[in-house]
Design a protein around this nucleic acid. Structure first.
Lengths: 377, 377
DNA sequence: CCGCAAGCTGAATCGTTAA
DNA sequence: ATTAACGATTCAGCTTGCG
């Protein structure tokens, strides 16, 4: 029996425990209407993009591009797509808690329809977030700009809801004391993270990277929150939610996807509460945040940092902050505080021990930057 | 006398249309309706989005909206903004040439309305472009992500128009030989570039940086093209157009802005023609038939052609075809057939031997083209 | 075992001209 | 209006296979 329970037949008003951390099979509007109202903290939705592709596209080497031509992405008109969007958005709004927020991802093919419908239904837009792709597909015919990003809309249930969750300080501390911007840089979901089908091809045509969902949840949820995904697909939302100590609810129509997602989520190991202190994803180049040393594996949580004269000792945490006892913050803030100064460059102030001698953590940053340059070359 | 002419005080000019390189004062819809249809190559529009349009906002039933009414009706407001957007977009579409394109810039407050209306009116979206700001305004309350970008929509007049201008090769060359992406990085318009009023404050609230307009025009116009800006404001579009050897037409309602923009544009020094040269790709070069190489004596019947790895050998025939045994046809068809592909560019696939090494026959085509240029000069 | 080359692929609204 | 032919066009990153 899979560790992820499934519900195919919901009772009219199921108890909370029944649908939490499950994947519901069926049409998303019908499934949403069976869930209790005001029961979900955050919704992440990756709806069909309504791509309108005519022929087949070939690369310059004449290989064929494997496009998204699934039936679920086909709509007869903009009006039909709008009606579909209104229906699921309305149903989603009912299950959202008054102070809940919703994330919707899309491309220029659909995101303008989506945003307009959201505004019409009373959702209050908080930000649009740009996912900049490090490795987007090129424009093979040289007819347009390389479509190198997707857009996410982050919105509250209505204009009046002001107490939505936004972990501003945590995001900022892990981002070198700069507030998190609306443009995020992440690679596509490829390699081992990408689920494969029995033929070795991609299981799902549009699987999203876990790093993207991780930043979303770290920004807009708290541990124990409920995250709903009405277009569950390969289950990235569930996998990240479980790893980060959040509950999930997935809805999907395809048994193939449900089975694969359930297996995937069952294999996820939740992080310890301590590790959850707050960890962040990659940030915009070329600035290197201290947190990225941890992400890159160059620095492990729990590592001790010292100033050059070993007068102070700090502890590295998983979220990219450091702490001396209860005093936690960015490498810069903690460095400034212990010295009683306004400011401090943590990169040169803090050192790590290697073979008995101290080396500034700036050396590790240099390593990361070199890697970024190589990647960009 | 200002170097920028105004529509009220025009002297008759022999060839150039009266409205070229002028600023038209008035409501943008009315002004657009007085311009000849299909007369403009590119439109750049930075429409207002604050819903406080004092008089220009009308409901679909033509009733006027009181934008400062305390009884705020969200739906009415969006509907009114949509109606305003439809009105100017429709008028703009009439003056756009069949192969013209339009750029519209906005933020998450209005861009979703704008994009939806564009799709509804038949504009065909080519890209959405993200302007990432190097120095955006912080989020002061710490309740959202720093809004660090704006979105531009680039669209053609309709789906059928395929011959819009896109200077792909030039952009790529300027971008370290990588195709230009949909995310652009520019600073805000500040410092000396920013127009000031008599109090020393900013003249216009949303003056766009010239670098942004320069990339737009370098991407989607050719020298001598006509660029229309229906919300001219501080005149950035006109200033950049003049500098880059493009014509402009501006529309604005405010005399203050018109006067400042006229003065600004008058001070602009156009670049020399030689600096305005556009890098052209092969698709802009005259077509050369393979047979003309034989006629020009650059290739003799009986010459052997090879692919780069010498897996196949073909024989040049006097009629401009090539043959492998009995299999004869154009350089493209034979190249495709031996590879088992649908298509093949014979110019780059086939090579001839010179001094023991292989050179693509494309080199001979370049020679012919060079001769054609000399003959035309 | 490593190092390097070659191959594959990702939410894509992806052509023009002459007969 | 339709068809056929011409011929232009890709970036990053991971995987596979060979020496």
């Amino acid at each position: 029996m899979s560790a992820v329970r499934r519900i195919e037949q919901l009772a009219p008003q199921p108890k909370k425990a029944e649908w939490l951390d499950t994947i519901i099979k069926g049409d998303c509007v019908a499934a949403l209407e069976r869930l209790p109202e005001k029961s979900v903290d955050v919704i992440f939705a990756d709806p069909p993009y309504n791509l309108q592709l005519d022929g087949t596209l070939h690369r310059p080497d004449q290989s064929r591009v494997d496009a998204v031509d699934d039936a679920w992405d086909q709509f007869d008109s903009f009006a039909a797509y709008d009606a579909f969007t209104r229906a699921w958005m309305l149903a989603a709004r009912r299950v959202l808690k008054p102070n809940g927020t919703i994330w919707v991802i899309g491309s220029y093919h659909n995101i303008f329809r989506v945003g307009s419908v959201m505004q019409d239904l009373g959702y209050w837009l908080l930000n649009d977030i740009v996912w900049r792709k490090t490795n987007p597909m090129p424009n093979f015919r040289g007819r347009r700009f390389q479509n190198a990003h997707e857009t996410m809309i982050w919105a509250s249930r209505d204009k009046a809801s002001k107490s939505y969750t936004f972990n501003y300080e945590a995001l900022k501390a892990a981002n070198d004391d700069l507030q998190m911007r609306s443009d995020w840089l992440f690679p596509l979901c490829t390699g081992k993270e990408r689920l494969k089908n029995e033929d070795g091809g991609k299981l799902h045509p549009t699987q999203k990277p876990e790093a993207l969902l991780a930043r979303i949840m770290m920004a807009s949820t708290k541990p124990g929150d409920v995250v709903l995904d009405p277009f569950f697909g390969s289950g990235t939302t569930g996998a990240v939610a479980k790893r980060l100590g959040r509950h999930f609810v997935g809805i999907d129509r395809e048994e193939t996807y449900i089975a694969a997602a359930a297996e995937r989520i069952a294999a996820v190991e939740p992080l310890d509460d301590i590790d959850l202190a707050l960890m962040q994803g990659k940030r915009a180049e070329p600035r290197v945040a201290f947190g990225s040393l941890i992400e890159a594996g160059l620095m492990k949580p729990g590592t001790l940092l010292f100033d050059a004269k070993r007068r102070w000792t700090a502890n590295v945490r998983a979220d990219g902050t450091i702490a001396i006892g209860d005093d936690a913050g960015s490498i810069h803030r903690v460095g400034a505080r212990v010295q009683g100064l306004e400011a401090c460059n943590g990169w040169t102030f803090w050192h790590f021990e290697e073979a008995g001698s101290l080396k500034p953590i700036d050396e590790l940053r240099a390593t990361v930057r070199k890697g970024m340059q190589v990647a960009a070359a």
